[in-house]
Design a protein around this nucleic acid. Structure first.
Lengths: 337, 337
DNA sequence: GTGAAAGCGCTAACAG
DNA sequence: CTGTTAGCGCTTTCAC
């Protein structure tokens, strides 16, 4: 490729001043229709594009959005992420932002972040999950706008777009009660207390609407990974009156649960119905495919970019809660006979 | 946060010239030990970091690597991608690069790319799959270095790091023959001819080593998605002498195959053994978990960044082929009795 | 409506 | 070894 053209050369070619070129480039007025046309012509005939780095310097803007992913997260959560990321990238491109990726490996690893921010390398940040108040403090001190996606808190202390997991839980459990199940276990993790609380709330509401009451031995809050899920299931199966359906607060838990049930020789949904939350791709590919509540990852990404863009431009924003009652019926739930 | 410091202010604070500061910042010699120390002190006491955008402008470098993902790709391939991406981001950070994301929606959608390149917004590009020769031509014309990860070609016409899928296929099929299987079907897609050819090669080699010959009706090259896999399986099952094992050229195909087999009432591995290639996370979470050949996505990402870095610095590089014979034994293969 | 000119913060000659 | 200075390519006053 030939040497890169500069605005100065374009100005010379068009026989005008650099200011005129800059103005038409940025759609500002102060240029006559005639010269504007001439400039536009030479721009398109030369394939000129302004040098971003130069603009970044003078405008004190990087046109970058930093996307922070927790590198320690379970690989399956990444499935949730990648759907969100796709949506973010698309929306950001439309608004003239680049998405630059950063993974943090522990909640305290803020060095990478700080470097990027100090260097003015990001106009704003999107976090794909809740952040510590320590980190929050540091970022606010630096003054870079940020938004948090998929917060698990009921009232996040920062701009966020997240799903209503109480509604999602109620939606899932109602599906179970509507299918005639009366003994419904709940498999959850209390590692994120807020998440446990709101999904439990939804669970209780659904039971109550169906005229059922909560049975304490059906509630498990230690379902974190394959092994712990296994323990929960074993405990449930050992009950004098085991449940006929299992509500899992995430698809990951649900998949682990189904696998262990099947390993122990039970059939899903014949012997046990299972329902999850999230609708990660895995839900569709598992055998049996998982009935679950869809969380709109596309909207999350899109709205987060919009929100951040507003923040960057100094506008006020309000938290967005995506109501989440979109049940995806697949093969893991069967009507209780 | 207080106003951002500039190199000039640091120089004043330290009582030296900007040049001295710049030199120590960039580790160049020409500064006495004494002044260097004084500069370092004031830098660390002020938390100064140089403005990247300024450096970008003068050095004509963006310190960005563009990571191009095919947005049309099957969601499950993303499983493959996300592992590679994690590795890329980590390695790039270590070398001072940002990873900026771009998704393209068709193989011909070069607009995003061109814009970024024209704007000097990327020092190099990493593609997560093969590119068209048209696109290759355009990028080469612009002169930006690039590397392709996970190319399916036997001799990619561009710098690349990819797995040896012939070896991987042989590894998978040998595992089947070692388990006593003699009637082994192959489920593949010829949508990427090169991939079909090399995996078929590995399949043939493994059979030949076991003293077996290829049975044409066992070879299916139209296994692209759920429906087509279903058709292949049905055809196989209708054979007078159906196979006892099925080698799938990707984990995705394998998962679809297992699901359909199970839907039709067969058991894996009791009735049919299934083996894949890739070792995507799904392989571990499926029921039954899938025996497959591990492809080292971590190495792919890491080596690709190293290679691109060399290219950016004007060094010569050679293609990297990761030998891929790391069998992960799980539950989908059983010895033929 | 148009053009000249002053920087944005940094690097790298160049002169001392 | 140290300081001065000319840009990198662009935006944006400020005169004309």
């Amino acid at each position: 490729m030939d040497k890169k053209l500069t605005i100065k050369e374009i100005a010379e070619l068009a026989g005008v001043s650099v200011a005129a070129v800059s103005y038409t480039l940025n759609g500002k007025k102060g240029v006559s229709e005639e010269t504007r046309k001439r400039i536009l012509d030479t721009i398109s005939s030369t394939n000129y594009t302004p040098n971003v780095n130069s603009r970044r310097l003078i405008l004190k803007r990087s046109f970058n959005i930093l996307l922070v992913i927790d590198g320690n997260d379970s690989p399956l959560n990444n499935f949730f992420y990648i759907a969100v990321i796709n949506s973010i990238v698309k929306q950001a491109a439309g608004k003239g932002y680049n998405i630059v990726l950063a993974t943090v490996n522990s909640a305290d690893d803020t060095t990478v972040l700080e470097n990027m921010l100090m260097q003015r390398n990001a106009d704003g940040i999107i976090f794909l999950s809740d952040i510590s108040s320590k980190l929050q403090g540091e970022i606010e001190e630096i003054g870079t706008p940020f938004v948090v996606i998929d917060s698990q808190k009921k009232a996040p202390p920062y701009p966020s777009v997240h799903a209503d997991y109480t509604v999602a839980a109620e939606c899932a459990v109602s599906h179970l009660t509507c299918n005639g199940h009366t003994k419904i276990a709940m498999l959850a993790s209390d590692s994120i207390p807020e998440y446990f609380i709101c999904t439990f709330e939804g669970y209780k509401q659904a039971l109550s609407k169906a005229g059922l009451s909560v049975c304490p031995e059906f509630i498990h809050s230690s379902a974190l990974d394959e092994d712990s899920v296994k323990n929960c299931i074993d405990t449930l199966l050992a009950l004098p009156e085991p449940p006929s359906a299992i509500f899992c607060t995430s698809d990951i838990i649900a998949v682990d649960a189904m696998n262990h049930l099947q390993k122990r020789g039970y059939k899903v949904p014949d012997d046990f119905s299972v329902c999850g939350i999230d609708d990660i791709v895995l839900a569709r590919y598992h055998f049996p495919s998982l009935t679950t509540v869809h969380i709109d990852k596309d909207a999350m990404g899109r709205l987060a970019v919009d929100m951040l863009d507003k923040l960057i431009n100094g506008e006020r924003v309000e938290d967005i809660v995506l109501s989440s009652c979109d049940l995806i019926v697949r093969d893991s739930v069967r009507a209780k006979n």
